[in-house]
């Protein structure tokens, strides 16, 4: 019931993480492992698709906080998409929409990355 899964796929110039299920204090380390691998592989343009993310707690938000600095230092970004209102509400209560780019869907985030890559 409260399972969590991360699916990783690569687009052109960016990576996409699809999150599914419950991102809580017990499952957050799974997402950390995925971010660590992306950084090791020097993949700094990351889209996190939250379409199937049913739940996030502060432990899940902590993972995004832990990696965003390293990602941006390497001229990349973590862009979040497809959030349900319930999940967005938790981000919003903690003031995250000011700190992270949040898009309606994956396509919008991909377009933004492409524009940024053109500008160099």
């Amino acid at each position: 019931m409260s399972e969590f899964k991360v699916n990783h796929r690569d687009g052109e110039g960016f990576s996409v993480l699809e999150l599914k299920g419950y991102l809580d204090a017990h499952t957050a380390p799974d997402l950390e492992t995925t971010f660590q691998k992306l950084l090791t592989d020097k993949k700094f343009n990351i889209i996190v698709n939250c379409k199937d993310l049913t739940y996030i707690s502060s432990a899940g938000l902590g993972v995004f906080m832990a990696y965003i600095e390293d990602v941006r230092k390497n001229r990349g970004d973590i862009k979040l998409t497809n959030m349900s209102p319930k999940v967005y509400n938790v981000f919003d209560l903690l003031g995250f929409p000011v700190l992270y780019e949040i898009y309606k869907d994956e396509q919008e985030a991909a377009t933004k990355f492409r524009q940024q890559m053109k500008k160099g």
């Binding site: 707690s57 502060s58 902590g62 938790v90």
Partner: peptide
């Protein structure tokens, strides 16, 4: 800002 934020304390605040 992000640089000034540290994880922790957010859960109880929520």
């Amino acid at each position: 800002s992000l640089e000034e934020r540290k994880p922790g304390g957010l859960g109880i605040y929520l």
